[in-house]
Design a protein around this nucleic acid. Sequence first.
DNA 1: TGCAACCGATTGCGAAATGCAATCAGTTTT
DNA 2: AAAACTGATTGCATTTCGCAATCGGTTGCA
Lengths: 173, 173
Amino acid sequence: MSMDRRSGCPINLSLEVFGDRWSLIILRDMIFGGRRHFREMLNGSMEGIASNILADRLKRLMELGMLTKADDPSHKQKAIYSLTEMAITLVPILAHLGAWGRVWLPVSDELSIRAELLEKGGQPMWDKFMDELRHEHLGMPLDTMSGPSVRATLQAAYEAVVASKALAASTAA
Amino acid sequence: MSMDRRSGCPINLSLEVFGDRWSLIILRDMIFGGRRHFREMLNGSMEGIASNILADRLKRLMELGMLTKADDPSHKQKAIYSLTEMAITLVPILAHLGAWGRVWLPVSDELSIRAELLEKGGQPMWDKFMDELRHEHLGMPLDTMSGPSVRATLQAAYEAVVASKALAASTAA
DNA sequence: TGCAACCGATTGCGAAATGCAATCAGTTTT
DNA sequence: AAAACTGATTGCATTTCGCAATCGGTTGCA
């Protein structure tokens, strides 16, 4: 593991944790995609991560305290990866990152709808989401259960955009 | 230049812009350190960036629209690097990143004081800071001038911590 | 006029990271 | 018994990284 400690600057140290091309992508898929298993992350990855890179990053993120691994009772070989509190608190950063990318970069409509909703929802939505993630990954009680989960809301919006684009394409043809 | 476009996801695209170990460090030094020249960034870099990496990243950040370069009137060979609006709007992300790192990583006292103040200042402070950066780098008028600049405030706090640590060390000895 | 210091880079090179395909042993399903 | 699936591991070619040395040109000072 690369424990550089180039400096004690908070921004530098944060970059040393996820300042590479894959770590945050993996966490994004776990947080927003609800992925928990190796194969899910491998095959479900939109960007096409290689299996050795995935294995390496999962190991690294565990050593850094961002993830934990547990046996899946349903399958002796299956491992379930869980987010730690440290990783769950990245939600506001991911929200800001998505909002920034949506403004300045050539994002696709269907993939940016989540970022848009998350931005509009603001801190209250992020808090609700983190609460849901703590329930899912850490077994904490859901103290503010109200309506559909944030992930389901985002997913539904994503699918609505995909459907509307498919409809527009078929009527145009 | 690597225009991957692995996917149109806002988070992925953001990572393709500054998802490496140096780009954000350079921007941090320009934003918080007020660095504008190549040598300033090279020698003032706490983490010790190499000159070829710095040159490569400056070029890359210019191609991506995060920086611009202009001649320094005082020195025919000197170049002044300026942040674009795209880079200035990274301030909230850097603030969140610093806040997260301060909680979860082994930051040093003197280097985390800035992140602490920036976190406590919240959006109003970030807005004031971005306004000052627009003035500095884009020549925009300062419409909300009030008191010392955010950078000066952060710098003074940093120096106060350094001084108090030096005092503590000398009295202990 | 000479010369050292400084300017933004560039080059060469070994080390490390990346991306891809093939493969592994064990588990579950069929 | 075979096929599909589990979380990985290995080998290998390519790319990137980090470091030191160096470049041609500019500036300030003696």
